[in-house]
Simulated scan of single mutants.
Amino acid sequence: MQIYKDINHDSGVRGYEIGDTYITVWFDGTARSYTYSYASAGAANVETMKKLAENGDGLNAYINKVVKFKFVR
């Protein structure tokens, strides 16, 4: 797991892992991880999430607004 930078110190994201067609996200206060894949959330959304994760800003807000429940079940 890569630690999320959270440059504004306002995110609930703790860390992430990036794969070719997915991103897995860990949130503060939970041991469970959430994987968003091309199949579950759409390729464009996953690619946006990857960029936000690497930039360390905006990932939590994007998840809440765009892909909240589109994780792999």
Rank of each mutant, 00 (worst) to 15 (best):
Y38M: 02
L52G: 08
K5F: 03
V46D: 01
L59Q: 05
Y34C: 08
T21P: 00
K68A: 09
M1V: 14
G15S: 14
S11T: 15
D6T: 11
Y38P: 01
N60S: 12
F27E: 08
V72W: 01
S40T: 14
L59A: 05
G29F: 09
F27H: 10
D6I: 11
K65P: 00
T48M: 09
V46K: 03
A43K: 14
A53L: 07
V72R: 12
D6Y: 12
K70Y: 04
A61G: 09
S33C: 06
E47I: 00
R32Q: 14
Q2M: 11
E47C: 00
L52V: 09
A53G: 05
G42F: 03
R73Y: 11
N60C: 12
K51V: 10
E47R: 01
V13N: 03
G56P: 09
E54S: 03
F69A: 08
L52C: 06
I3P: 02
T21W: 00
N45I: 01
D57K: 10
F27Q: 07
A43G: 00
S11L: 07
N60P: 00
K50T: 00
R32C: 05
A44E: 13
L52K: 07
A44Y: 01
G42Q: 03
V25C: 10
Y16R: 07
T30H: 05
V67C: 09
S11Y: 07
Y38W: 14
S40A: 14
D20T: 01
I63Y: 08
I18D: 02
I18F: 01
L59N: 01
K65I: 02
Y36F: 15
I18L: 10
K68M: 11
A31T: 11
A53T: 04
N8G: 02
M1T: 14
K68P: 01
Y22I: 03
N8R: 15
S11D: 12
D20P: 00
S40V: 05
N55D: 13
G12F: 04
V66T: 15
I23S: 03
Q2V: 05
H9E: 13
N55G: 04
Y4A: 12
N45T: 02
V25E: 08
W26M: 12
N8Y: 15
V67P: 01
T48P: 00
T24A: 11
L59Y: 04
N55I: 00
Q2H: 09
G15M: 03
Y4R: 13
G15Q: 03
N64Y: 08
Y4I: 11
K50I: 01
K70E: 13
K5T: 07
A44V: 13
L52M: 07
G15C: 03
H9D: 13
A39S: 12
G56V: 08
G42L: 03
G29S: 13
V46P: 02
R73A: 14
Q2P: 00
